[in-house]
């Protein structure tokens, strides 16, 4: 039941001379969802990039499915089943919608062979277009022509193309209107009900706490709190004390 999926132990990471993460632990079981909350600059994105393998860890250990992957390069981690929907979505503007989806499945050829990969790519594209009809209407439009909301839909679809076991979502609602943000959360909820394991990074807690199992709060590169989501949602004082962000922001 509680098969370990991801285990981050005392991870330290940063950029150049700046250390951003000072020994962060994160544990996730298969089928679980956890929210990583924290103010701007707390190190949430760096944590995601370290799990995905783009930012190297300087100390500590990352293991996935029981295997240590601390030194595994990013391009191999997606093949293991870790997919990141990064902050700012990072859609390839010079590629079409369909090319963006296809490239999301680039790791499949190595994993399951060319023929099986082709079949899974076709199915994945169909699923994406069923989930987001707006993308399917214009598959040859370039990624740069999409609105923010459409880009987020494409970014999620692109990550799903590799059939990840672990989905990392970095601030999925950033820059989106509240209405679009709700739509993104509806999608995430649907994925949750399909049993998708995920780590979701958010600045504002309310929406995320609704559908994750657990949540932790980062503050200047350290984990200061971790609890069941229901517990945190009930105890807003505790949360805001650690969280240190304006309640006004959360009310949005």
């Amino acid at each position: 039941m509680t098969e370990e999926l991801l285990n981050v132990e005392a991870i330290e990471a940063g950029y150049g001379d700046t250390r951003v993460l000072h020994g962060v632990d994160l544990h996730l079981s298969e089928g679980e969802a956890i929210a990583v909350l924290g103010a701007n600059g707390a190190g949430k994105s760096t944590l995601m990039m370290t799990i995905a393998g783009i930012v190297p860890s300087r100390a500590g250990r990352v293991s996935y499915g029981g295997e240590e992957i601390t030194a595994t390069p990013a391009e191999e981690r997606v093949g293991l089943g870790i997919a990141l929907v990064p902050e700012g979505r990072q859609i390839f503007g010079s590629l079409t919608i369909e090319e963006n989806l296809k490239i999301g499945a680039a790791c499949l050829k190595h994993r399951i062979g060319a023929t099986a990969a082709r079949k899974q790519v076709d199915e994945g594209i169909e699923r994406a277009f069923t989930r987001f009809p707006v993308l399917g209407k214009r598959p040859n439009d370039s990624g740069s022509a999409l609105s923010g909301g459409q880009q987020q839909m494409l970014a999620i679809s692109r990550a799903l193309m590799s059939s990840p076991k672990l989905l990392l979502m970095d601030e999925p609602c950033m820059g989106l209107s509240p209405k679009l943000g709700n739509e993104v959360y509806d999608i995430l909820k649907a994925l949750r009900s399909e049993g998708q394991s995920m780590v979701i990074v958010e600045e504002s807690s309310r929406r995320a706490l609704d559908f994750v199992d657990r949540a932790c709060v980062l503050k200047v590169g350290r984990k200061v709190l971790e609890a069941e989501a229901a517990e945190l949602a009930d105890d807003e004082n505790l949360l805001s004390a650690y969280f240190g962000i304006d309640q006004a922001v959360e009310q949005q």
């Binding site: 995905a52 393998g53 783009i54 390069p73 990013a74 391009e75 191999e76 997606v78 093949g79 997919a83 990141l84 990064p86 990072q90 390839f92 503007g93 010079s94 590629l95 090319e99 296809k102 490239i103 999301g104 680039a106 790791c107 190595h110 692109r158 590799s162």
Partner: peptide
């Protein structure tokens, strides 16, 4: 070609290209 879209992707967003599993 698929190879070409990898090249274009890498020119635009090298980190994201690695994140989808393309070896630099």
């Amino acid at each position: 070609t698929p190879l070409g879209s990898k090249v274009r992707a890498a020119a635009e967003l090298p980190d994201m290209t690695r994140l989808v599993g393309i070896r630099p």
